[in-house]
Nucleic acid binder design. Structure first.
Lengths: 114, 114
DNA sequence: AAATATACATAGAAGTTCGATGTATTAAAA
DNA sequence: TTTTAATACATCGAACTTCTATGTATATTT
């Protein structure tokens, strides 16, 4: 029986970022916009929140980065998820599910257990 | 459009603890056991994790505590959720749902949006 | 020309979590 | 019976995370 450590218990940022990147490569600023859009404006990450996380994920070898210049001439640092990152995402999904199932039990199902 | 702050984004501990207490009063050690049991042994909080959180919740006025002695003579510090705590739980549930909906979108639904 | 949006980065402050350690009592096992 | 395990609380320091603020720079819009 695996123990879930703080690596995921505390944070939803890592599975969210890895999930975004597993669909398509992206860059920090765009990820912030996408999260805001997909949450109907309810989740607004600051830039100071996401950049350190991206750096950490790269340092740990889950994603890679490369500078690209857009047609308009603006420089962007694109991130790509790699195999290790995909594996990490799988385990993060499992962990999230464990926590969510627990929360569902506490909210609705099996009230008679308590 | 409310912005979700780190008060919940980071942690599942607070909604989980408040949810447990909203069913029945309990004490630190028992909460740890219950979480472990309800998650089929997958979530194991340490005592050093939960006691500071309980103290914080009490200090912020969401729960109250009282010492009781069990039949066996063992002393326990029971915690009860109050009205402010129940209100807090409601907003925590809303926040959790926002994040979970986002995650569901990233995993299954609406892949064509990306 | 000025203001806004895009796009990166980091530093410091504040908060959180974990593992270790400590105390004490009760129950179970050797 | 003595020792071990379980129960039950608490706190400390280390490590990590997140937020706000600040800084730089370019492109677009007003």
């Amino acid at each position: 029986m695996k123990k879930i450590s703080k690596e995921l218990i505390g944070t939803s940022t890592i599975p969210i970022i890895l999930s975004v990147l597993s669909k398509k490569e992206s860059y920090g600023y765009e990820i912030i916009q996408r999260i805001k859009e997909l949450s109907n404006g309810q989740i607004e990450w600051g830039e100071g929140t996401i950049y350190p996380v991206l750096h950490k994920l790269e340092k740990k070898g889950y994603i890679t980065s490369s500078w690209k210049t857009s047609g308009s001439g603006r420089k962007r640092k694109y991130y790509n998820i790699n195999i290790k990152g995909e594996q990490k995402l799988v385990s993060e999904k499992e962990n999230w599910t464990v926590i969510h199932q627990l929360i569902l039990k506490l909210w609705n199902i099996e009230p008679n257990l308590i």
